[in-house]
C-alpha cells in the first residue's frame, strides 16, 4: 500500500462519512480545512477507518494526528 493509494481511499471515505462530495484530501489537510470535520465526526471517521483497514487505533493516536498525512502514516505503520 502506498501513501497515494491510502490518501485516495481516505478521500472516498471522508466524502462518504462527512456527506460532502467536494472533499479532496492532501497530506497537509487538517480539520480546519473541512467544515464537517469536527470533534463529533472525527470519531465517526476513526471508527470507519478502523473497519476499512481492519486496524485499531489507541486512544492517544486518535487525538494525535496533526494532519491527514500523519493519519496516513499511522495507517501504513499498522498495516506493515
Amino acid at each position: 500500500m502506498s501513501e497515494t493509494l491510502v490518501l485516495e481511499e481516505l478521500s472516498v471515505l471522508f466524502k462518504d462519512v462527512l456527506d460532502n462530495g467536494d472533499i479532496s484530501l492532501l497530506s497537509s489537510t487538517t480539520a480546519e480545512d473541512i467544515d464537517e470535520w469536527d470533534s463529533i465526526t472525527h470519531m465517526m471517521l476513526v471508527v470507519e477507518i478502523e473497519k476499512k483497514y481492519a486496524i485499531k487505533f489507541t486512544a492517544s493516536e486518535t487525538r494525535g494526528w496533526n494532519n491527514v498525512g500523519e493519519l496516513v502514516k499511522s495507517i501504513l505503520q499498522k498495516k506493515s
Partner: peptide
Amino acid sequence: MDNRLYLANDVVFALD
C-alpha cells in the same frame, strides 16, 4: 463498548 470514546468524550457506548 468503546473505552476511547468514553474516556475522551463521555460517550458510554461504541458508535456502531
